[in-house]
Amino acid sequence: TTLHFDLDGKKLQYTGVSEEIARLVEELKRRGVDLKEIVRILEELLK
């Protein structure tokens, strides 16, 4: 799965993300978590 974000005018793309992580990101968005925080979490998970 590939995730795309537009953060402060920067286009971020994460490829090869598992379905689980993609679902987690969608859930965080639904809960109103700040996009910067979501990206920070995502980068930690993908290390």
Rank of each mutant, 00 (worst) to 15 (best):
R30M: 14
G9Y: 02
G9S: 04
E43P: 02
K47D: 07
L3T: 01
L7S: 03
L35F: 06
L46I: 10
K29W: 11
K11R: 08
T2F: 04
E20N: 05
V17H: 01
D6E: 12
V17R: 00
G32M: 07
K10A: 11
D6L: 07
V25T: 05
I41N: 07
T1G: 10
T15V: 13
L35A: 09
L7V: 13
K29L: 12
E43L: 05
R23S: 15
E26W: 08
R23A: 15
D8L: 03
D8N: 06
L12D: 02
L28T: 02
E43N: 08
R30W: 13
K36E: 11
T2K: 05
L12M: 09
L46E: 03
L3C: 02
A22T: 10
K47V: 13
L42W: 00
D34H: 08
L46F: 06
L45M: 14
E19P: 10
E19K: 11
L46P: 02
E43Q: 06
L45P: 01
A22E: 10
H4N: 13
V33S: 05
L7I: 14
L45I: 09
K47T: 10
R23E: 13
I41M: 09
L3F: 04
R23K: 15
T2S: 08
L45Q: 11
S18I: 04
A22M: 09
V39A: 03
R30Q: 15
K11T: 13
E19M: 13
K36F: 14
K29G: 11
Y14V: 04
S18W: 02
T2Q: 07
G16C: 04
E37N: 07
T1C: 04
E26R: 06
L35G: 09
L7P: 00
L24N: 12
V25A: 05
K10W: 08
L28K: 04
R40D: 10
V17C: 02
R30S: 13
L28Y: 10
T1E: 12
K36C: 04
E27M: 06
D6Y: 10
V33E: 15
E20M: 05
E44G: 08
E43H: 05
G16N: 14
L42A: 03
R31N: 15
R30E: 11
T2A: 06
E37D: 12
V33H: 08
L3N: 01
T15D: 11
I38K: 00
L12Y: 12
T1A: 09
L28C: 02
V33L: 11
L35Y: 06
R23W: 10
L7C: 03
E26I: 08
K11S: 10
V25M: 07
T1K: 11
T15P: 10
V17F: 02
L3E: 02
S18V: 05
G9A: 02
I21C: 03
V25W: 01
V39H: 05
